[in-house]
Amino acid sequence: MPALEIAHLTYTYPTGTRPSLQDLSLRVEKGELLAVIGENNSGKSTLCYAIAGVIPHFFHGQFNGSMLVGKVNTADQTISALAEHVGLVMQIPGNQLSGVRFTVFEEIAFGLENLGMNRQVIHARTTAALALTGLSAFAERSPYQLSGGQQQKVALAAVLAVSPSLLVLDEPTTFLDPQGARQVFDILLELKRQGKTIILAEQRLEWIAEFADRVIVLQNGEIMLCDTPEEVLRHPQIKRMGLDWLPYTKAAAMAKEEGLWAKDRPLSSTFSATVAGLQNG
């Protein structure tokens, strides 16, 4: 059974004049890391909201098609009831703090309390989430006093603590420095190893190339491409979708033009593939 199955989803916001998602169908297997990329306003955040049930339960609008998380049809459940199955990290970190908890520890424990976990479980999971995100030293601080980057980690830790089988992350590293971002991707990789399914909307394509199992490119709410990161990121049409080749791919393309890259070898989008291509040119 797939972890997520979307069939012919078309959605228009109540104030929208055209659909933000158009006839979108997608099947994500358990344990898969699927990256969602595309220019701004292409529907990435809308898709994230739809998977977590925020659409159609919070934003109503025109919703057609179906969205299955495991066996659960999101249209039949409240957002809060879905919380156990789907975790969502939203784009702007400060806005997703609960506003009811005074310390980082309690903020991360908040979701577990809502799900009625007992004290031992709350303690164990919150402590583990703090450690994994490197926030242990901040446990007793007010989450409102943290920087944007740290708040982004709190939001991630809060989802990790609940440990839903499906995680949806909407650009979770925007405010982090390069090493902080790398840390987040390492955490995601670890979660994947534990069998979690991850949907990741992201602008930092360098990481997508390295870590994603599959990538979809959205434009005007439609899936334009759906393939492995290698295929998508070297796709000749990607510029028309508001994206761009990575410097690795550009270097490979130039090398090919100069005859330094084997003719039958596809262009690369990761460090190792570029190195291999150049060495065997």
């Binding site: 420095d177 390069p178 090493q179 902080g180 790398r182 360098e206 990575l246 410097p247 690795y248 270097a251 460090f271 570029t274 190195v275 150049l278």
Partner: peptide, 18 residues
């Protein structure tokens, strides 16, 4: 770079490797 929380850019990484 390590002290400053930074990482090498892609091309610099390639260039350093070679």
């Amino acid at each position: 770079l390590a002290v400053c929380g930074l990482l090498q850019p892609q091309i610099v990484r390639l260039s350093t490797y070679f």
